[in-house]
Structures are given as C-alpha cells and as structure tokens.
C-alpha cells in the first residue's frame, strides 16, 4: 500500500510542484528516503548528515514522529505523513 506524504508549500518547487507524493514504504524514514531519492533537490532541505534537520517536523497523521518511534515509526494502511516547517513563518511567502 502507498502512503501519502504531503509537501509544504515552500518545498513543492523541489518536488515537481506536487502538493503530495504517494510512496510505498514500511517506515517513515524509508518513506522519506524514497521521497528524497525520487526528488534529490529535496534532500538537503530535509536532511543534514543523514539526520532529519531539527526545524523539519514530520507527523504521521496527527502525531509528531519525535513522540512516536522517530524515523523507525512503522506505517500502516491509510497513514498520512505531513512535513511541517517548525517555524510558522518558514515558508515561501513569509
């Protein structure tokens, strides 16, 4: 099954202008790695030294993965991943 990853407005320019991308993966980390393999320009905005950058928040449904199992958080059917900039002003139009 594919998990839908929604992309924040500011990063869509690096993801083929898509507002969401569907990816099959067992964990959040694997889903994000597949996403950045598909859209390499997205990589440096999400990861530094192979770690999720501290100002990038990733949610599975309504939960921040920091309070789940981080990047090893398993994905089940109908889960949705959201990438949300940590600061409210951090998008293209602030």
């Amino acid at each position: 099954m594919a998990t839908r990853i929604s992309i924040p407005t500011a990063l869509r320019q690096y993801a083929g202008n898509n507002s969401s991308v569907s990816i099959e993966a067992p964990t959040v980390g694997a889903a994000l790695k597949t996403l950045t393999a598909q859209y390499p320009d997205l990589g440096k905005h999400l990861f530094a030294d192979d770690k999720l950058r501290s100002f990038v928040n990733v949610y599975v449904n309504d939960d921040d993965i920091r309070y789940l199992d981080g990047e090893t958080t398993p994905l089940t059917e109908r889960d949705e991943i959201s990438i949300i900039p940590a600061i409210a002003g951090g998008n293209a139009k602030d």
Binding site: P8, H45, S54, G90, K93
Partner: peptide, 18 residues
C-alpha cells in the same frame, strides 16, 4: 540557506515567491 529553515523572521530571497 533555503526556503524552510529554523531562523525565525528571515527569508530566503532567491526562492521566495513573494
């Protein structure tokens, strides 16, 4: 260094749409 970042209040002029 990019359009999303953790430096509140400042913006990346090269990629901003506004």
């Amino acid at each position: 260094d990019g359009p999303i970042h953790g430096i509140e209040g400042i913006k990346h002029m090269a990629t901003t749409t506004m």
